[in-house]
Design a binder for these strands. Structure first.
Lengths: 332, 332
DNA sequence: AGTTTTTTTGGCAGCGCTACCATTTTATGG
DNA sequence: CCATAAAATGGTAGCGCTGCCAAAAAAACT
């Protein structure tokens, strides 16, 4: 029943039907410039009757500035980026902007290709995760006539705008917290550090802080795959099999930590007296666990909101650190 | 450092620089039509030198058919839709299509507005969740010159293409499973049925199946908000406070079920002997819980893949039921 | 060498809209 | 009532590309 290949109604047809000029229809529809009430009614009636849907492709081409915002994000499975998108979504929509997105799977080469493909849509802005990009990606973005927002990190040099928080500071805060609580045999279970450079920053900062306090990291289990609850559980299992006297484990994120928590439950390991668990992200579910998860809550939605707001406001280049919050919880 | 407001390089400039005609550049860049190797090299050199990025806005306008695919989904927080997007993403990308999306928050009126706004981009296809749309949404989609895919449901009449599975069958299977296991005092904890019509279908089918077996639903706790782990935990708490002799609880999804599971852990309720728990979705984390979650695994990624494939293949209107899998688990 | 066929190429008219400018109509004021 | 300002309207040149067609160049045959 869907009617394909029928020519869509054009603005010219609406103008014809309403007995006015094309530019008048355009003005009425965009509520831009002046027109009389009577004209507006005639135009709107014609629009209604013909079922006219403006063609933004044409509109964008004619008016230069596009209202597309391109998101090039590492993953959709990771709730972090879904939250960022959610935060940005509302603001963009209010301003009649449209979000376009592509997923890099944490691969810089794919990011490069996707940025190139995104720029072909002449977006008003490109939103990326973090500061680590290939040289060509950076060159393309510099050459492009659009804003760039690097999100979820502030440790480095921004191309244009940056919104997020310090992953290094997060790693340090986590280490300091565990040290303050008296843990001395600390392990780490994490996912692919090569690709997730923000996780790598947290990890290295965590280790440095421990070392600076003469408590070197006791052991670690790092998977090359993406993070998951399952990896967290397997990782803790392997880690403890090798180094059984750990008193605390730092996970690369809450998903991994939940896996570790499940492992402890299954093996009867008492938390936190036998083993402390510390995560990262501050997912909602951490609050609801039988023992609230000790973790760091990151401003994911706020990052998206701020990123969108900066673009809408055409703010000057700057770096905005939204900080994070350490949640003491009951698992560490 | 980002250079804004500089005119972008155009195809005409490349043609000029390469000393060839515009259409020749166009042919080379799209690898469409014929051209000599020498010409290709000259064009590519000029492209490289000038840093030319094709303008797809213009290209789309000139060639009619757009390579945008619009996703109008209820939520990004719900992993279900992220999975669908992920599934579709790869296929779309291979075919040089671009995903555009907007989030309805399960609100049909918002869906209507967003579909209207999406159609303005003249997408090749619009991907929606389920069959329940406002009349105006349906009219717009019928009138639009594009394909429509309704995803994650097959209980109803499709507008054009539909890919998913039967939520009614899923509800029935869940009920039959619990009955087969001998549970007779069965409760339900769910989220907003008014908005999530697929959850509503599962619920009503679940109840009907119970009734048909003379085991009416013992009690239920339904929240008007979105589903979450927290709501699941609170919901089970309320439900048990009111009806303490339940022997099984059906949750509207795995998140809610995980909340219920946490509640049992916290209260020392033994699963499944004291209380059985059954979810819906088959999230990965269910497999890793100390006791594997009994649930129904839905083909979320496959739905996205199939939806994209149908569009790429320009398949005729049809409904594709990908089925689901009941995971017996250890919690029911 | 002269044809015929095939491959390559360039020119240019749109795609549907907006921006700009010119014109007409209406309102304002003395 | 006419001059002047203000509001409303229409015409049209692009935006940057693609599709079509005709022309030119190269290749393949007599």
């Amino acid at each position: 029943m869907t009617s394909r290949d029928q020519a869509a109604v054009t603005l010219a047809q609406v103008a014809e039907a309403a007995g006015v000029g094309e530019s008048t229809v355009s003005r009425v529809l965009r509520n831009h410039g002046s027109y009389s009430g009577k004209t507006r009614d005639r135009v709107m009636t014609a629009v209604e009757r013909l079922g006219y849907v403006p063609n933004r492709i044409a509109g964008t081409l004619a008016s230069a500035g596009s209202r597309l915002v391109a998101f090039v994000i590492p993953s959709l499975s990771n709730i972090v980026f879904a939250d960022v998108l959610r935060g940005a979504g509302a603001t963009l929509e209010e301003n009649q902007y449209q979000a376009v997105f592509a997923v890099t799977d944490y691969d810089p080469a794919r990011e490069e290709a996707l940025v190139a493909s995104m720029l072909a849509w002449r977006p008003a802005a490109v939103m990326l995760a973090g500061y680590e990009h290939t040289e060509r990606t950076i060159n393309m973005l510099r050459a492009a006539n659009c804003r760039v927002v690097e999100m979820l990190d502030v440790d480095g040099t921004a191309l244009d705008l940056a919104v997020g928080f310090s992953n290094r500071a997060a790693g340090r805060a986590s280490a300091e917290f565990l040290l303050k609580r008296g843990y001395r045999r600390i392990g780490y279970v994490g996912h692919d550090l090569d690709r997730d450079t923000r996780a790598a920053k947290r990890y290295s900062s965590f280790c440095e802080t421990l070392s600076a306090n003469d408590v070197p990291l006791a052991d670690r289990e790092i998977y090359r795959e993406a993070s998951s609850v399952e990896r967290g559980r397997l990782g803790l299992d392997s880690l403890l099999a090798r180094t059984s006297d750990l008193d605390a484990v730092y996970f690369s994120n809450d998903d991994m930590a939940l896996g570790g928590y499940f492992h402890c439950l299954a093996r009867g390991i008492v938390i936190p007296s036998q083993l402390a668990i510390f995560g990262y992200n501050g997912l909602d579910l951490g609050r609801v666990m039988p023992q609230a998860l000790s973790t760091i809550r990151t401003p994911r939605v706020a990052t998206g909101q701020m990123a969108a707001k900066l673009i809408m406001d055409n703010a000057p280049s700057q770096v905005i650190d939204l900080g994070f919050e350490l949640i003491e919880g009951a698992t560490a």
